[in-house]
Write a protein that binds this DNA or RNA. Structure first.
Lengths: 352, 352
DNA sequence: CGCTACATTTTGATCGTTCCAATCGACCAG
DNA sequence: CTGGTCGATTGGAACGATCAAAATGTAGCG
């Protein structure tokens, strides 16, 4: 005679198994699981023992189906391999986990097409909401069509192209790009710099536009001129930045400082400067943006703006959780402050 | 009169809504969704139109419940913020997504206790399998107790402490640490180096032991001596490595080359050498391990071993998918090759 | 004893999908 | 006209949980 009380080999243990095992109904077991005060102490103890004995695992999907709830949230990132977003993801997962949610991960590799596909696939798992850091060129209309008007979403870091439907429960969390770049520029000006370039990034990207605007703002406020050849575009990575370095010196007057789009670009630029015999932090001032781990360890250490991506991740999660509690609230735009970190890469201009 | 054909405001659109909308049964709509050849062309067209019109979204959770399948896989990492694991995660997600799975993310922050909690929480979502990069000190018995003997798992990068149950469907994917360190050492020997140190890492860590073993292997094979003071321990980061640099030169004979535990250590060591007026890549040869992004951009560029974490991620996913197809197969231990990347930091010894 | 009050437990329907067996109409052979 | 085959469709029972309402049992009280 098979002892069917032994943990069964093949099928998963369900409520019904436990119920049968200690001679109560499924409903009672369910009440025990959820810690209801309705069940008798003795019954509870018996059921809990049986749960342990059979190695029961709760099936949240079934519960969610019946309750018409969801316990997951989709996190879709344009570039998880980038340490900035990896930190962000860590923060998101941390906060969501604490709130009892599970993170559905999707990475789009900066492709709007893949973003559509990923969103579609994740949606089938019925997330309670979405945290999206859009791929470059991702469009509001497209996104709306795949996720509908009813799924709450927090957009991080970039806005969507095209116009956002005013009734959609979409919140926004951005870095204070403009103020950050302004702070960096003002810092250089305070050091006595007058010929300051804006280096790197794609002029199409909204974060680059905002940072450039902050730079322009500070320059204008100080009454300093802005030469057109002081704005150099390049891909936001070290290699391209190093390659584009020379473009700063094609025409006179050459700049003596550069506000860079981000840290990767700044580190690349410093490399390029070295290769030309220019010593950054002595002959030429450089600032970055993001404060990635390497910024403090480069030679010279990089002056930059700290954006604390992990805290941003937690914040994005909080925003979404709040919206889940308050689905009808008006859309919010949150701008997270950034902090200037002064290190040795920013210096006064060489004596003329 | 309300036109209930309009996309409904409140509830989600289900099979039943579509069925009602075009006057067929739920079963037929389901067949259409899954592309069954059984349905008539005209019916299919009508249904598909209605699906579009109502903005239907497939509920995979319900389907999985009925079919007793799962379409998700749990990815649990000890440190997502580390670029190496972020790349790994990207690779995993890439491969899983292509196979129609969704990634459930969990980050443990190197805490075995949190790892238990995270695993438990993710299990409730009934993943088809787990990819786990264990936290330091994570124990096989503990893990077994929370995930059971029936959930397939791929362990990455570290083994679990304690003994692994022989019947569990657990596979292993490790880097070839020993061979990597051996290759680096042989490379230095081929350049004419004879006094080679092993620098950095904690002797307790299994990856450090393996790399050191590879170094010893190459030295012995070449008949070269190994001085005890040629092994310097330090934390696997730049700062500590730079600080420990001096220890290489306390006793004679001083080494003229060092095989480093990883790139971070190697970069730190190079910094320390510079500070002593020793020019790495000319006066002293250095190799690293990992080939992180900065390795190619340091001065001098670093000779190291490429572990291609993104490819490892894809590989881990493939291993798991294979096991899902073949649940009864014997556990596999896969060792991923690493590739020597020769750059300018490795050089012949200075002429005596 | 009959009635209410209370604590505890159960029954049966339900969530959105899939599966199985049954049905239906059309067509053809005998 | 009957019976069989075939293509297309359908009803209803699952999957594993929850919920609302009903059913127990037990005690108190006039």
């Amino acid at each position: 005679m098979a002892t069917d009380s032994t943990p069964h080999a093949n099928r998963k243990v369900t409520l019904a198994d436990i119920a049968a095992g200690c001679d109560v109904s499924r409903a009672t077991v369910s009440l025990v699981l959820r810690g209801s005060p309705l069940v008798n102490k003795l019954t509870r103890a018996r059921v809990e023992e049986e749960l342990r004995r059979q190695g029961y695992v709760y099936n949240r999907a079934a519960a969610n189906l019946r309750r018409r709830t969801s316990s997951s949230i989709a996190l879709v990132l344009n570039d998880l391999a980038n340490p900035f977003f990896a930190e962000f993801a860590t923060g998101v997962d941390e906060a969501l986990g604490a709130a009892g949610y599970v993170t559905l991960l999707g990475s789009t590799g900066e492709s709007a097409a893949r973003e559509q596909a990923v969103l579609g696939s994740l949606l089938e798992h019925d997330p309670a909401g979405i945290i999206l850091s859009p791929a470059e060129g991702s469009d509001a209309g497209q996104v709306l069509r795949t996720i509908g008007v009813r799924t709450p979403m927090v957009l991080f870091n970039r806005e969507l192209a095209g116009k956002t439907p005013p009734d959609a429960p979409w919140d926004l969390l951005m870095l204070d790009n403009q103020r950050g770049a302004r702070l960096a520029t003002e810092h250089l000006i305070a050091l006595g710099q007058k010929r300051i370039a804006f280096f790197g990034g794609h002029a199409g990207s909204s974060s680059c536009q905002q940072r450039h605007a902050g730079y322009v703002e500070a320059m204008k406020a100080a009454g300093l001129p802005i030469e057109p050849h002081w704005r150099i575009e390049c891909a936001p990575n070290r290699v391209d930045a190093a390659a584009q370095c020379g473009a700063l010196f094609f025409d006179a007057p050459a700049p003596t400082a550069a506000v860079c789009y981000n840290d990767a670009v700044a580190l690349g630029l410093m490399l390029g400067l070295y290769q030309r015999g220019i010593h950054p932090g002595r002959d030429f001032a450089v600032t970055g943006f993001d404060d990635i781990a390497e910024a403090a360890l480069s030679a010279p250490p990089l002056t930059t703006l700290a954006s604390t991506p992990r805290a941003r991740g937690r914040q994005a999660a909080e925003l979404l959780l709040q919206r889940l509690n308050e689905p009808q609230a008006a859309p919010r735009r949150t701008v997270a402050p950034v902090q200037l970190v002064v290190r040795a890469s920013s210096c006064p201009p060489p004596a003329a």
